[in-house]
Nucleic acid binder design. Structure first.
Lengths: 103, 103
DNA sequence: CTCTTTGATATGGTAAAATACATCTTTATC
DNA sequence: GATAAAGATGTATTTTACCATATCAAAGAG
């Protein structure tokens, strides 16, 4: 799974967990539904401005993290402490590969 | 400061702190130096694949973080005790030269 | 069962922008 | 002044993103 796929699938999951259709997200962001379709299906290498716009409409933020700090960050983001979030996560047993190699 | 500016300035700082020129980073990534120039100067809305490629060559990773967890993540990434983490710090105590600047 | 409607996602064509390639300007050092 | 390194600019190609439309699925009416 490439890094772009990871990001776009993350966005897709976040959208679905919020119960939004592509069209609904399109209305929130101003980004065409057709573009969201292509992005989620891996047919588009979206611009960073598009990534940021989609992320923010889904209450997410794009950040750069030093690789050495990834485990610490993951330990935070994969916690299911928050009620508002855990209620929307259907499969909490997920675990992304933590290897330092790219795939 | 826009989100894209934040990301590109973060990349620029990381590159400079590693002592890499735009050309050197270009060789590592395969991305043209001209493109790196435009990206760092805010003249380009880069693609996500480009962002990921540049980030990885600088030992960084692009991640999506829930907004509610941003403070916790920042408290990790902005620690000063880390050895290799000092991107975007205004004036690091590093000096690549010999330290004598009376010229 | 068939037709229609409605909602969600995918596809084709075009304009705008990122990227690649070549070149230029600037700065420093000799 | 020459040379080299770092960053910026001009043009052609590639690709995103927009717009209109098509496909697909589910549900209801006739």
């Amino acid at each position: 799974m490439s890094a772009i796929e990871y990001l776009t699938q993350f966005l897709k999951s976040a959208r679905q967990e919020k119960g939004l259709s592509q069209r609904a997200l399109s209305l929130k962001t101003g980004i065409q539904q057709t573009q969201i379709s292509r992005i989620e299906s891996g047919q588009a290498d979206l611009r960073v401005s598009t990534l940021v716009e989609l992320a923010r409409s889904l209450d997410l933020e794009v950040v750069l993290i030093p690789r050495s700090l990834l485990p610490a960050v993951n330990s935070i983001t994969q916690k299911k402490s928050s009620e508002e979030n855990s209620a929307l996560v259907p499969e909490p047993a997920y675990r992304l590969g933590n290897g330092t190699d790219d795939e």
